Amino acid sequence: MATFTTPCVVLVGVVGGRAVYLELDSGKRVEEFVGVDVDSAAPAVVGDFLEGHLAVTSYSATIVKGVALLKPAYVLDAEGLRPLVKKAVTVRSVKAKEFGSWEPLWNKPVFLQRSSPTVAVGFSRAGALLHINAVPSNVEIAEKALAVARILQRGGELHMNCTCRLGLMPVEIFVRRDGRYIVAKFYLNASSPRSGKAFFIAGEGGNVLERREVGLAEAEVAAYEFLSKLKA
């Protein structure tokens, strides 16, 4: 994980199996081993243009926004695994703080390619610090999490969030109806055995009614079974 003091603008790319971060103003460069090569671009400033796979900025108390630069990237949230806005960005526009078209990315994992293996990058804030975490991942984990989310959203208002600062990069799906709730959790870091499983909790008030761990292949069946507990 790499840490930068905000406000900041950081360029992100993967080179030779390592995630590379370049902070624009200070020139601070951090590398993180991920062990996966993807079709990416090295972070750099060429003339007036920013290069790399992504650019991310963080300012104010909670704002984290990003944009794809030279290569496509995909954001995982409750709406799906969707393309991150992609555009050319100049140093001049960054200095003028022209971030209106950049997308919110706080605790939303970004996949650097939509085929496996891939790299998932997450962004989070802690006080004045921006944390960036990159892990090897598989698109199939994201797709399974989305399939479960679509099932569980039938039970009530659904929230989907990634605790991006943690090494396992867990994605949590939460749905509540009246006093009951369901939590489903997936782990995006494919180097961990946990990434091959889904974890479900059903609860009511402060009490846990059931916990279950299943393989990814059984996640949708388990989601339907847990959904019935909301309707009971």
Score class of each variant (00 low, 15 high):
Y224R: 11
G196E: 09
V38Q: 00
V10R: 02
V45W: 02
L227M: 11
K197R: 15
R177G: 00
V14E: 00
A223C: 12
Q113M: 10
L227K: 03
V91F: 00
G179D: 00
W102M: 15
S101M: 13
L22G: 02
K144Q: 15
N189K: 07
A120E: 09
V67R: 09
F200R: 00
E140S: 11
T6A: 09
E157S: 13
V89H: 02
M169F: 05
S137Q: 03
Y59L: 03
K144D: 15
V30F: 11
A126H: 08
V14K: 00
G156L: 03
K71A: 08
I141C: 06
G127E: 13
E103T: 15
S137K: 08
S40A: 03
C8T: 14
T3A: 07
S60F: 02
G127F: 14
K197L: 15
A222K: 06
A96N: 10
A149K: 09
V139H: 13
S191N: 05
A219D: 11
E204F: 05
Y59C: 13
K229M: 14
E220G: 07
A78V: 12
A134P: 02
E31R: 14
R29P: 02
G203M: 08
L152H: 01
I173E: 01
Y224G: 01
A68M: 13
G80H: 12
V148D: 05
V56L: 05
V38S: 00
F99E: 07
A128W: 12
Y181K: 12
E225L: 08
R211L: 14
L130Y: 03
G127R: 14
A232N: 15
E157H: 10
E98N: 15
G100L: 12
A222T: 03
P117A: 10
G122T: 04
R165P: 14
G167Y: 09
G52C: 06
G47S: 10
R92S: 07
L130V: 09
V12R: 01
K229Q: 11
L158T: 04
P193F: 12
G13I: 09
A2D: 06
M169I: 06
V38W: 00
A126Y: 10
K28M: 12
E51R: 15
C164V: 04
V45M: 14
G122L: 06
R177A: 04
N161Q: 15
I151H: 06
E23M: 09
N133W: 07
L168R: 04
K87Y: 09
S40H: 06
S60L: 05
L81T: 05
A232W: 10
V171W: 00
P104E: 03
D25Y: 09
Y74Q: 12
E204Q: 14
L216C: 09
K87Q: 03
L230E: 01
P7N: 05
A126V: 11
A68H: 11
G52L: 07
S192D: 13
V183T: 14
I173R: 00
V119L: 05
V64S: 01
F199G: 06
R154F: 03
E51G: 08
I182N: 00
F33I: 13
L112Q: 02
L105N: 03
P109W: 07
A73F: 04
V67L: 13
V30N: 04
A19F: 09
A61F: 03
L168N: 05
R154C: 08
L11F: 12
